[in-house]
Nucleic acid binder design. Structure first.
Lengths: 204, 204
DNA sequence: GCCAAACGATACAGATCGGTATACTTCTTC
DNA sequence: GAAGAAGTATACCGATCTGTATCGTTTGGC
């Protein structure tokens, strides 16, 4: 293993274990044992366990958001359908055998103080996710893109939370149906042109 | 303090600390220090820390569900309005200064294994909450009470999750608006009679 | 008022926690 | 190929974890 890969490997291992057991329950000794790395090495790359957690969350944040963007944008060009496609992306993540809930919500649950750096990192991730929804809602020319984004966001969080407890993927489909129903009743700034200005027809 | 009160006092203290710091981060030593009780005493009432957690969650489960029932049932007699009133109850809990997220979701986040007794206790609480929504949806004569209950439940979880991160109460109001919008489009088994068969008119 | 149960206080066990120190080896790079 | 950075392995530190043992004191029920 090349030297530059060790850091990535440590982050991968840590993320996997944090997801499986949680942050407090995952000890440094377990991480280095699973990564097959000496403790000295870990502490050469990360000053403290908290630093490791923060680096892991940063990595995961970028991965998640990039993956959602890529999934959604190759799925359809219509902004409304893109808003709905975010739930399909959610479904793929929930169907993963390793799914045990949103790692950022878990991080916030284990670090409840709002000034805790881990809490703030989770908050930042959620803000960025919300910003993406707002971007899509704006592109869809909804009259109140901020409110639409907040509603989509709330449905996402609800679907993931229910899936975390029930360990089934149905809540993500349910949330999508609810989103479609709600969006259908929403005002748009300009009525969508019939017959294609870049995307297919708006959601029914 | 009378003997029978010690157990209750320990549960209160433990719940408060679990809510403030989380389950793993709250040590036995802190609990007994805050409760002003000897370690021997705690272990006379609870065999292990896990037993204490389970007892605390059981207590909280009953408290929460009873409080919601009481709040909702004194608020209105109309079943649809009762479904919507559950969000008002949610708002009161979220507005509490001590609110740091749902204790059951946090418990499930820290005990992710589905066979873990703590996870199962959280799952059981969520099932009972869902059953109450179903009871209300049935009373409201919705054509698909199970689906309605699941939708209300998903909105609840979403509102609490967003409130946990943002630490504002607005998501509960937002979820209520979404619920009202969704319920208005739902079929009922028998159209509500105009002019009172026990409840006021159905939601607009 | 006696007795047993429950309490408080403290010390301790054994494990594990995050993190450091040391000594040796293996790369990478000039 | 020398030098220095980064790796491994291991021992260790002090703190903290859950849980137990000991022992003297308080208390409630008969």
């Amino acid at each position: 293993m090349r030297r530059s890969e060790i850091r990535d490997h440590l982050l991968d291992t840590a993320l996997r274990l944090f997801n499986q057991y949680g942050y407090h329950a995952t000890g440094i000794d377990l991480i280095i044992a699973e990564a097959g790395v000496a403790k000295t090495t870990l502490y050469r790359h990360f000053e403290t366990k908290e630093d490791l957690i923060l680096a892991a969350l940063e990595r995961r944040d970028e991965e998640d958001r990039n993956a959602m963007r890529a999934f959604v944008e190759q799925r359809t060009g219509d902004p409304v359908e893109r808003l709905l496609a975010t739930f399909d992306f959610l479904e793929t993540t929930v169907r993963d055998k390793q799914f045990r809930g949103c790692m950022f919500m878990s991080a916030a649950a284990e670090h409840k103080d709002t000034v805790d750096p881990v809490f703030r990192a989770s908050l930042m991730h959620k803000r960025l996710a919300l910003a993406y929804f707002e971007e899509l809602a704006h592109a869809a020319r909804f009259a109140e893109p901020k409110r639409i984004a907040a509603e989509i966001n709330l449905l996402h969080e609800g679907a993931v939370a229910v899936a975390q407890i029930t360990r089934i993927a149905e809540p993500t489909r349910e949330a999508k149906r609810m989103a479609r129903q709600l969006l259908a009743a929403e005002e748009r700034l300009t009525p969508p042109t019939r017959g294609g200005d870049g995307g297919e027809r708006t959601a029914r």
